[in-house]
Amino acid sequence: MADITLTKKDFTSDQEVRWCPGCGDYSILSTMQSYLPELGIERENIVFISGIGCSSRFPYYLNTFGMHSIHGRAPTIATGLAISRPDLTIFVVTGDGDALSIGGNHLIHSLRRNIELKILLFNNRIYGLTKGQYSPTSEQGKITKSTPLGSLDTPFNPISLALGAEASFVARTVDSDRKHLTETLRAATAHKGSALIEIYQNCPIFNDGAFDMVTDKETKGGALLQLVHGQPIKSETHGLVHSGASLKVVELASVPESELVVHDAHNPDPAYAFALSRLSSSALDHVPVGVFRDVERSGYGSLVNSQVGEIIAAQGAGDIGKLLNSGDTWSVD
């Protein structure tokens, strides 16, 4: 691996990028292109598979193998590829509509099975490509073209959903924070099974400023609760303490540092990560970012291929002549 020396340029395709000016997708793309050389994997062994939506144009702009598939179904295609080609590194790029609405079923089952996929969920809390309808992560009461009197749906919390689906790796980061996004990508690619990264992503056209609380210099320091394994969970102004069976945000000044919850991403009990996930509300006043959960569990593709390998080791490779002649047979002279 050490002898592979690629640069950001190697991962940049010749296609003109066609997102709206100011779209959060630009910074995610640029961060990804900068990060990929660090992986030390040849371009031909990396595949990006996406569904439909603004985010799903992502594969066109990376000089790797890529497929822009159909709405919500990227995890299914990636699943077949991951199981049959365990030699590849596969990213799924999706959005809140693609992954959580039309493709919700595939997302939860990919996570449950622990398919070897790195799923990047660009969450802008809106349908952008269809020009501005509310999405499954839009806050309740949102006024959009399809909800002129305000949306009535309770939104999904993607982190909670993933944890409920038995995900072995779940993280959250923010589009404009290149450093944090890179660190999160690094942790996800180091993880063996499925990894879900929710990326807060600003849509400047249909939902501008949705994440100002966590991107504005004024507010982000106090809003972002940093999840760093082995470190106390805190923002610049607040920290996290145990409160009965749950967790509570308190002002840092009100408790000694020793009482703060020390983050354990490897905690086998998903209830801990779930409690963390419940701290972020639509209002975004306290938002944990970083790796919520990172536990070891066998990847599905690896299990499938071991099963095949073991039976061949035990019984030898199949002989088609023998198979056709198996069971009750008889001869006609």
Partner: peptide
Amino acid sequence: IAAIGSALGASYG
């Protein structure tokens, strides 16, 4: 849908 999607993904590979 996932059944045929996975088959198409495998075919791609």
